[in-house]
Design a protein around this nucleic acid. Structure first.
Lengths: 290, 290
DNA sequence: ATCCATGATAGCTTTTGTCTATGCACTGTA
DNA sequence: TACAGTGCATAGACAAAAGCTATCATGGAT
């Protein structure tokens, strides 16, 4: 008998349904299902009668409710007792992989200045961050904002995607570069890039099917390849590096808005943690303007 | 923050030492060590000051003690609340692999007749059962008793190891069989047999180095091989099967005593479970005499 | 009769929990 | 001052747990 099992148990009791309990506790329905099954196996007797439309407690289940609540309360109390003094809150910050390293560095520095905050960084591709927020695995996510989830998002800045060339490339001086002039240029694939499908679509639509000289997960490495003259690529402006020239691609107006998204539920940081989180948000905002 | 972690925490508090806490909770010292480390990571602050000779609580640690005790008490209370009515106790019975199948079957039948008992069988080689008892992974172990652990053991019966031959084998009628007459006989290896080293020693000492026609984990399969005439083997009398003749080996007086060993600590079954366990012991005894 | 809602099951991956073996740091003794 | 002993930490391996997605089964509602 374990804290987690009892939590799911109580969630089922409170919602009257396995699926809703899963939503409440932010796990999948099979997770709740198997947790209850395990608890029943431990206890040696069924706790719920599953009729198809609703779930109700057995006698044994009913007997477990109050003790389970006391246990959960005792845990909460214990955590409160500790929070009372040491007052360190861990903020789990999800980071999109396509953020500039020095940019992230500045954020870390800004957050380290905050008292009572411990930062945990979780790097994922941009698309995966939303799921992490939903599952409550991170408290805050920093990355390009999709058009959809503008709900609890805080936009920080907007930037264009530009063509990256090495400094001495003939086209590096051009004001604007037409896709058609790039037919014979080798290109590099930034594998984590959220705009990757749009970029390749842009080129193929113009009959440009370049040789892909490299595909890499590492932004630093790609910048190095560009600088070394291995090929060109498209990247957000903030990823620019010394020795790499960034020029607009004619007809490619895509931009991205980088911002913060807050974890929605009431599960994440408690009322204290919430204040801490907004402190982190402020620190990040000022790190960017500064 | 989890029940298990708090248990180890309290054990350290109570014993004043990681190693003794490990003994108390019957896990290894590194287990306690890493559990405390994990708890401290969760909580965000050290709970113990490790000075080399003793371990003492930090302020945060001290603050956790009472809440942790309340939590553990609440769990115990919850389990008691359930035990009150449905009163099913699971008895984990360790079984040596070299017990006859029908013998085990009789035991299971006898135990199923007991009310409020759920039997969980854990099959291991004889040598591994002692460790399971020590770690509190089983409540009761049934198998050959070693000379050493006669402490809490209950002997049930004693039996010789005999040579197993197929019915129509020329030697099957002999009163006693001398090892030397077996020089050209293929033999079978019962891989789980606790007496294996002694048996092979017995033969090699007499210059008999037989061809091993098969080595198997399954007693049933070995019996089948003997019956089919693939080879001979040595087995405890109780493993005899129809179509298999058992004859004494001249000069091989080894016997084994099969018995029950009780789990020693106070961790295992509670005072209620203890009564149940002795019921199981009685059931097993009568299953054997019957 | 079909569809929808809801829980169970299967298969798979990641994380946790545990072990053994070994390292390191301090203590007390020769 | 060296050296054995004690006690916690670490490494590496492995098994079990806990999670997910995808799919199935079932029974009421349309």
């Amino acid at each position: 008998m374990d804290r987690l099992l009892l939590r799911y148990f109580l969630a089922v009791v409170d919602t009257g349904s396995f699926s809703r309990a899963a939503d409440l506790t932010r796990v999948s329905q099979p997770t709740v299902s198997s947790a209850i099954a395990r608890l029943e196996r431990d206890v040696g007797t069924p706790l719920f009668v599953r009729s198809n439309r609703r779930v109700e407690l057995t006698e044994a289940g009913a007997r477990l409710v109050q003790p389970a609540r006391r246990i959960e309360a005792a845990f909460v109390e214990a955590q409160a007792a500790l929070a009372e003094t040491h007052a360190i809150t861990t903020i789990r910050l999800g980071l999109a992989s396509t953020l500039a390293a020095d940019f992230v560095e500045a954020i870390v520095v800004a957050c380290r200045a905050l008292p009572g905050v411990r930062l945990e960084l979780i790097e994922r591709r941009a698309g995966e961050l939303a799921a992490l927020l939903d599952r409550g695995r991170v408290d805050l996510a920093l990355g390009p904002l999709g058009a959809s989830d503008t709900r609890r998002a805080i936009a920080l800045f907007e930037e264009p995607y530009l063509l990256a060339l090495w400094d001495s490339h003939p086209l590096a001086q051009a004001e604007t570069i037409a896709a058609e002039t790039l037919v014979d240029e080798p290109m590099l694939v930034r594998r984590q890039c959220e705009a990757l499908p749009l970029v390749s679509q842009f080129f193929t639509a113009r009959g440009v099917r370049p040789f892909m000289a490299a595909r890499s997960i590492s932004e630093e490495r790609v910048a190095g390849y560009v600088r070394a003259g291995l090929g060109l690529t498209v990247m957000p402006r903030s990823l620019g590096a010394p020795g790499v020239a960034l020029r607009p691609l004619a007809g490619f107006g895509l931009t991205r808005t980088v911002g913060l998204v807050l974890e929605p539920g009431e599960h994440g940081p408690g009322k204290h943690g919430r204040a801490v989180r907004s402190g982190v948000v402020d620190a990040i905002r000022s790190a960017i303007s500064g």
